[in-house]
Write a protein that binds this DNA or RNA. Structure first.
Lengths: 341, 341
DNA sequence: CTGAAAGCGCTTACAG
DNA sequence: CTGAAAGCGCTTACAG
């Protein structure tokens, strides 16, 4: 029976060396060389014996020791507003996958989108000596970001971008434009935007993309037609309520920059006796798994969340190598469903 | 300006010692003693000087070095089916909170509920030398669990329980009973259950609790009225479809053991021209934030997800101390809304 | 091709 | 009360 993995007493490099009657440094060298040949690390024969025994004993190097020696932990810190936001949860799945492939492990922490918590969480991760950070909750007016730069902490942004920092995001401006094109072509002329939080580039870019395209199509839209809101269902409901009570003839279409806000808006519309899709069109953003499965399926801009997570890992890896990297924006796609068809 | 945290060159114990002209071991002793007095570690005066300088220099001990020396990493591994399942995401928030309070950091990985992945992820975490594991995706027929026990890996289950292992879960049986009481008292006599995955105790216990109570109330329910399904929206939709097509007079109430499945079922009902709440009652489980905000608000059993996460951390901590711990079941509560009122 | 030594940053008996 | 040493498990020049 092989004693694979962490049993009672974990196998060390020295154990292997003793059993083979060679020096630990030789074992180390072999285990580090390209796994095919021993490229100068030891004789082919020795290398083979080492590798066989390592496999047999289920040797796995102690990351504490390796990290202490190499000053690299192979650890990545990830900070998100909240993992209970489906969008971030999926991006994190992308991160986990890509990180595992590259031999990194990831910590993830929730900041609740609160600047103090962001800083606290970043400090906890740095105290753990992560090699780098992936920040999924950047605020446009953040002062944490310049601080991290000053402290030479390697990091990239994900999900939300901030000018001057490397990031992996959806092309949110384009996403907003797609929605404007769609609603315009459906004949809508009076629309409102449930815009999300003004400190998040996702909200700002999606809204700006929509407005700019709407106007260039000849449409009319004023500041009053844009309601900033929280990203969750309750936030969307409140925003829709306020739109319905203050716009005398109600708009015929609503663009919510987030699926959850869109769902909340759908609830508000229903409370007012309006049928989504027939009386008022609704379009969301992200195309979370729920959108297509709702009682009234929701039109939504699909953002490549998994790929954004993967891209963030690749970016941070390049930053760790000392490369200069440019922001990366992945293309979204509009999915039209009953709520706006 | 204090150079707090990880700057260019991180401050070490030796740095502090040199600057104070004392031995590193003394610094270590002081920093370890109860933070008020130096309890035998050094003179009150020395202790104070050490602590002041540590604060001033932003000293934070290197966890790699500490871990290597103490053979404790203060790391916890968490395995969940998927973080994009809101239920697990919220439990993880509870874990993160409680773990941080106790000075633990947590890794979390998705297993997609696949036995091979569960094993792979557990191995990755053990290779990282986590002190213990919190397993949120246990299968009733798992053979990973006995293996971990054999390897003396400290772990607890969360969310789903398996007989013979410590766990923190919702009292799912009770939850099912609450739903049976409610639907019965509303006058329903023909009901179906969308039961979830048979390998998960959550599904099995909720379903069993419902059926057992239903029968004890004098109700009739056969195996045909129970449809096993995936936990997600699509799974709920498919299950409801199959119920509607095969039960000639359709049931007047549906109990889905998961809110997302319930939402899928609501969609299917609507497609069949049935109005949820009027034609067919629907009750879900977990009371995720969406339930109350849906266009037709969903009745749901509220499970204390955050507390379950916190409880899991406390349990695993006790296991790490070598205590024997009993399974813990937290009480759920039924929230009645328009979908079944 | 392989061995021996030094050292990463800590903690912990052990002296004195 | 404090110092000095050993060692946790690795990696990496440096010899030979």
């Amino acid at each position: 029976m092989d004693d694979t993995g962490a049993g009672d007493r974990t196998v060390t490099l020295k154990d292997l060396a003793n059993e083979l009657g060679i020096h630990p440094s030789t074992v180390s060298r072999v285990l580090h060389s390209g796994s095919d040949v021993a490229r100068g690390a030891a004789s082919v024969e020795t290398a083979e014996r080492v590798r066989d025994l390592a496999r047999k004993r289920g040797y796995s190097p102690d990351p504490q020791a390796t990290g202490l020696r190499t000053r690299r932990t192979q650890l990545l810190g990830v900070i998100v507003p909240r993992l209970s936001d489906l969008v971030l949860a999926i991006m994190y799945e992308g991160i986990e996958e890509a990180a595992a492939e590259l031999g990194y492990s990831t910590f993830v922490m929730n900041s609740q989108d609160d600047p103090d918590e962001q800083r606290r969480k970043a400090d906890i991760m740095l105290a753990r000596r992560v090699d780098g950070l992936i920040i999924g909750d950047a605020h446009l007016d953040s002062n944490l970001l310049p601080d991290l730069t000053a402290r030479k902490v390697p990091f990239v942004l994900m999900n939300r971008r901030v000018h001057g920092y490397p990031s992996a995001t959806c092309d949110d401006t384009l996403g907003g434009q797609l929605v404007a094109d769609h609603l315009w072509s459906q004949g809508h002329r009076k629309v409102s935007v449930i815009a999300g939080e003004p400190y998040a580039s996702t909200a700002v870019d999606r809204t700006a993309g929509f407005i700019e395209r709407w106007r260039s199509l000849g449409g009319n839209i004023s500041d009053n037609d844009v309601v900033w809101s929280r990203f969750d269902t309750a936030g969307g409901r409140e925003a829709a309520e306020s739109i319905l009570t203050r716009s005398k003839p109600h708009p015929t279409a609503l663009f919510a920059v987030n699926d959850f806000a869109a769902i909340g808006a759908m609830g508000a519309l229903r409370s007012h006796g309006l049928t989504v899709g027939r009386d008022v069109a609704v379009v969301g953003f992200n195309d979370t798994s729920l959108a297509a499965e709702l009682p009234i399926p929701l039109s939504s801009v699909r953002s490549p969340m998994l790929d954004i997570g993967r891209a963030a890992v690749k970016l941070v890896q390049r930053v760790l190598r000392g490369e200069r990297v440019e922001p990366e924006m992945l293309k979204p796609m509009l999915c039209i469903r009953e709520s706006s068809a």
